[in-house]
Design a protein around this nucleic acid. Sequence first.
RNA 1: GUGGCCAUAGUUCAGUUGGUUAGAAUAUCGGUUUGUGGUACCGAGGGUCGUGGGUUCGAGCCCCAUUGGCCACC
Length: 376
Amino acid sequence: MKFNISHTDKNSKARAGEVITDHGTIQTPIFMPVGTAGTVKAVHQRELKEDIKAQIILGNTYHLYLRPGLEVIEQAGGLHKFNGWDKPLLTDSGGYQVYSLSAQRKLTEEGAKFTSHIDGSKHFFSPEGVMDIQRTIGADIIMAFDECTPYPCEYDYAKKSLAMTHRWLKRCCKRFDETEGKYGYSQTLFPIVQGSVYPDLRMKSAEFIAEQNREGNAIGGLSVGEPAEDMYAMTEVVCNILPADKPRYLMGVGTPINILESIALGIDMFDCVLPTRNARHGLLYTQNGMINIKNEKWKKDFSPLDENGTAYVDKVYTKAYLRHLVHSQELLGAQIASIHNLAFYLWLVGEARNQIIAGTFRGWKDKMVKQMNCRL
RNA sequence: GUGGCCAUAGUUCAGUUGGUUAGAAUAUCGGUUUGUGGUACCGAGGGUCGUGGGUUCGAGCCCCAUUGGCCACC
């Protein structure tokens, strides 16, 4: 993997660049649609490429390991072959799922014991095991196995957890470096900064992560319920320490406004379930704010879904029709809304990139944040 | 025509020997969702209990009449 920065903004820490992988080039800043179980829910690959213009999508170690299982994915020839996505892929390590899904989980120095949400079966993830699993899934970018601390989180717990996440990282790096990709292309490992909302822990973690000298770095443990100001403050502290010549990935973020503000702080990569999950519940993002398409006021609004939208669905479907589909729980409703939201997110980061290159990012960003901060 | 059963929220139904402000589901309306457990969660509005009398301190419940619906028999 390579990372080249072509432009940096003079009035913020924003930068435009490209991440080059064996499955193609990603122009940053970028938003990565989440495809947990090997599919971006309700969206075809062709729509992802041609309409949404996605450049990289996510998969999830936890979910894919449980179903369909590693045997299937390995025999398919890796996840790219299995799901037909020939562009870059990133897999999350399952650290977040161990935190968010398993009511019954036990973390020890060795790893995490957890029960499957599908059938209650018992499993164990170690840092080494998670590296092996991600080798088998075969994503271009794979993530370290970490503990995502909850919010709120006591300082002492955050400190102990961070130390263990760092020890786990050393084990991840060791196993990753001792093994190689199974399908003839290279993979890269991103470590993850933790430290909850405590600046000193975040700084210490960023320094430790920077020392590992990987090809890119991630920030985790944010957007878990803390105030947005805390999230921005932690992001800023960490970005000041993580090397500028490597991509920075802010995990799980966020709203369109979160993304623009974080780009201004020096973040290059994002992923978030909001555009797809909210789409299924009828919430649409636009340049002028958020729309709840289920609201009665759209019942007889026969104007296009989004006059400023870049996607096919924005022009051919009306608000009243999508309201009907979502109300009726028709599958097409989830599909149209998901395509709209993802196309908007990709437009947003693409336009941010254009503005950075043009040297006008800061003013544009401030205007967009103001404009999007409302409900239609 | 005779007998029986039924009538409670937009809809489908609970509602104790008669006892505080008649409940639920669903639908409607509004909100929430941040490294996705694929239709979730939270909240709100909505009923002169078919109608009219009666008994009672007190009636959705008991009695009478009446209207509408369903069933059986002639």
